[in-house]
Write a protein that binds this DNA or RNA. Structure first.
Lengths: 249, 249
DNA sequence: CCAATAGTGTCTGTAAGACAGTATCCA
DNA sequence: TGGATACTGTCTTACAGACACTATTGG
């Protein structure tokens, strides 16, 4: 067999890294923290940390998220559309032998989709955390011409692509919205995540015609200006049928 | 910051596990190996093994695959539809603290889609490896009433669902086919993976009408019986537009 | 009044599902 | 000749995209 004695191998460190996405001012933004120590000291990086010996991977990701932002995330098979909380799912695992110069580190990246947070800067070590538009981060000159630490640029790109893809076939776009929202606000989420402009009338017809996607709450609001809009909350459906397809794919 | 001194933590072992799928006799089958040692001695398990200190995750998966089956797999951004080889991609990572009773093991599962192998039993330790129909494995009594070792039942289920989903939107179904194949043979792949019956006429129209999916080679064959069928090879397209959707979703 | 957003309706093209009918092999 | 599979065509329905139109607010 090809199983080996584990003690014959030097140890691996296992970490979780978080791609935390939100929509702020019509732009998809990712949470970054500034590294205070070597390597990549002073660089911007994804939040994350080491997995503790007695906790699972999702558990570690959830703990790190709470430490960095105060958000309480629920994984996919959670208690449904509950209180205030973000969506969390595993993204992918990155384990190139030289991705961390100190030692062999395997990082299990997770994706978090969060509504726009009331606090402009996330909690914890506030001065060293920020939201950055992913449009800037995915270009050739991420943050003031400096790339992200480690392979976090690649991880971020994978997370953004996952988010862009998943809101097509699932109701996850509502994870970016407050508990109650209008069709126009939901459309702005799709426009920000995909970086496109959608027809408001066709969008309204599609989204209200997909069973289980939206549940009317009865209330209305004029916070978008114009005619009062109906308020909705996320319906029970997790998979959209028919899906919301990206234009000109 | 929430980074800790790596040396302060007990070591993790990192393994790769393989969900190797193929289509044999109109059924989707997975490769299993019989464990020769404790724990779960005598149980059927997914092939896999420890990641070596100097190799990446995909590299380790590819090495294990070659050791177990003799297959040479190419990952997604590979040299295109090349010689004989299987498709390999990362599936997900499993790290429950007690998933291996010996020590803390984090396993990065990979998914392999392979054409039906000429050898009825895979190479290596031949007597302890077998193809098993996934229809049996995913039921309540996997193999002769005995579940798979560790959490491999869950990993297999995730891999099968990934395969069922990916052949909708990508040209990966051709990874189950020999280098040259007919439309009917490709349809049998879809029917085996999805466990449904498809209309041969509509399937033919869809698959030949999707640009870049199939490339005619000029040859014909009668190995399916009946009128000679045109032979195709996989075209350059990796993403299908329009997609091949599963019925009654 | 106008500007802005919400919501409805209408038309057209594409494509999926159902299924008739023809073509070409083997036994 | 019959049976099997390959392939083409036709009809109906569903839905996406484009866009006209009405409704209801605030300024």
């Amino acid at each position: 067999m090809s199983r080996y004695d584990p003690s014959a191998f030097p140890p691996f460190a296992v970490t979780v890294d978080l791609v935390v996405l939100t929509v702020r001012e019509h732009a998809l933004c990712a949470l970054l923290v500034r590294r205070g120590e070597s390597p990549f000291q002073g660089y911007w990086a994804l939040p994350g940390g080491f997995v503790r010996p007695d906790e699972g991977l999702a558990e570690a990701a959830s703990r790190e998220l709470a430490e960095e932002t105060g958000l309480r995330a629920h994984s996919a098979p959670g208690p449904g559309p509950s209180a205030v909380g973000a969506h969390l799912e595993q993204l992918a695992t990155y384990g190139h032998p030289q991705r961390d110069p100190r030692m062999r580190v395997v990082s299990v990246a997770h994706l978090v989709l969060a509504p726009d947070l009331p606090t402009p800067q996330p909690g914890g070590d506030a001065s060293s955390a920020r939201w950055a538009p992913v449009g800037d981060l995915l270009g050739p000159t991420p943050v003031e011409g400096v790339p992200l630490a480690f392979d976090h640029g690649r991880i971020l790109a994978d997370g953004v692509e996952r988010a862009r893809s998943k809101i097509e076939y699932s109701s996850l776009a509502t994870a970016f919205c407050p508990p109650e929202f209008t069709v126009g606000e939901l459309r702005q989420v799709y426009e920000a995540v995909w970086g496109v402009v959608l027809d408001p009338r066709n969008f309204h017809r599609k989204v209200t015609g997909t069973p289980g996607f939206l549940l009317p709450t009865g209330g209305t609001t004029t916070r978008q200006g114009g005619r009062p809009a109906q308020l909705f909350k996320a319906g029970g459906a997790t998979v959209l049928n028919p899906p919301m397809l990206r234009p000109e794919s």
